[in-house]
Write a protein that binds this DNA or RNA. Structure first.
Lengths: 164, 164
DNA sequence: CATTTATTTTGAGGAAGTCACAATAAGGGG
DNA sequence: CCCCTTATTGTGACTTCCTCAAAATAAATG
C-alpha cells in the first residue's frame, strides 16, 4: 500500500544506521522501523511500537520488537522506564538525565527537566554505601485536561487508570 | 502447632487491628499476617510476603495476599513501589516521602531520605500544566558488598540481576 | 447463638515478557 | 556479482505476575 501516514522511515534512517554500526550492530529494517517508531512517538509501549513499526514493515513480529528494544536499551540508544501499573515505555531521548510526569487519569506522559536544573536527585543524603549510578524519577499527577473534566463531569464516565 | 520461629504476630497486632478498624475494615488473620510479614521484612514482593505470612497462617492463598496488599495500599496503610525488572514491593513505612536505592547486582533495597531533606524532587521545573501529587524516586546503583565482589571474583558466578 | 455481609478461597484467565531453536538476511571475501 | 558466515529475526511454547467472577467462609453485631 502507499505511504499515506506522512513520512516513512528514511528521514532519520542514515543517522540510525551509522549509530547502529558504531555499536557493532547490523542495520536491519526491523531495527530501523523500531527506532523510527520510537522517535516519532516517544513514551510508547512495546505493543504500540509494534503497531507503528508495522505500518512500514507489516511482517515484523512482537518478539523481534522485544529483542530489539532490549538490545538497543542495553546499548544506550534507547531509554526504558516503567511507570506503575503500566508496561515499559521507550524513548530515543537518552544521555540527559530527564524525568517523567504521568497523568494518573489519562496516562499521558510528559518529559520533565531535572528539578533544580542540575541533577539534584542524583545526590541522595544517605546511600548506605551504595554507589548510585542512575536516579529514576517519576512524577504522578493529574494533567490540566483531566483536572478540568474531573470538576465538570458532563457526559463521560470518570476514569481511574490509564488504559493505553 | 507451636511457634518456634521467634515472635509470631501479636506484637504489633493491636496496632494493626485498630488501624484496620479505623479504615472500616474487619480484622482478619489474613490481613494481620500480611501486615506482620511486611513489617518484619520491608521491601518484600507479594510472593515473599505469602511465604512469610504462611509461617503463621499456612492456609493463606496467593490471591488473598494480592487482594489484601492492593486494598491496604489503596487505604494508605502500605506503600507499593515497582523497581525495574522486578515485581512490586511493599513496605509499612508510609506517610513520609522517602525514596529507594536498589543494588542492580543483588537486588537489595535500602530506604533513602529525600535528597535535600525536604522533598526537592516534588518541585519539577516544568510540569506541562500537571498537578503533581507524588514523586517516585528510585536510585539504581551497586551496593558495597557487590562492588567488592565485582573487583575480586573469587568463586561465585557473577550475578547480573536480582532474583528474590 | 444466629444473621448479615465483608473477606477469603477456588479456579480460570490475561497481559507482558522470556527462552530455545529453526529460518532468514546483512556484511565481508572472492 | 555471488557465496559464506553468523548476526538477526521468526516460530512456538512457556513463565511470571497479577486480575476477575463466583462460591465458601468467617468477622462483627444484636
Amino acid at each position: 500500500m502507499e505511504r499515506t501516514h506522512g513520512n516513512g522511515p528514511g528521514a532519520s534512517a542514515p543517522v540510525w544506521s551509522s549509530a547502529l554500526r558504531e555499536h557493532g550492530r547490523r542495520v536491519t529494517r526491523q531495527r530501523l522501523a523500531v527506532l523510527d517508531a520510537v522517535e516519532r512517538h516517544p513514551h510508547s509501549s512495546a505493543d504500540a511500537i509494534l503497531a507503528m513499526a508495522r505500518e512500514d514493515l507489516p511482517e515484523l513480529t512482537p518478539q523481534s520488537v522485544y529483542v530489539v528494544l532490549g538490545d538497543l536499551t542495553d546499548l544506550g540508544m534507547l531509554r526504558r522506564f516503567e511507570p506503575p501499573h503500566s508496561p515499559a515505555l521507550y524513548e530515543t531521548r537518552v544521555g540527559d538525565n530527564h524525568h517523567h510526569a504521568i497523568c494518573s487519569v489519562c496516562g499521558r506522559v510528559e518529559d520533565v527537566e531535572c528539578a533544580v536544573g542540575h541533577a539534584p536527585c542524583l545526590t541522595p543524603s544517605e546511600t548506605h554505601g551504595m554507589t548510585i549510578m542512575i536516579a529514576d524519577v517519576t512524577y504522578v499527577g493529574v494533567c490540566s485536561d483531566c483536572a478540568a473534566k474531573q470538576h465538570t463531569p458532563p457526559s463521560g464516565p470518570p476514569q481511574t487508570l490509564p488504559s493505553t
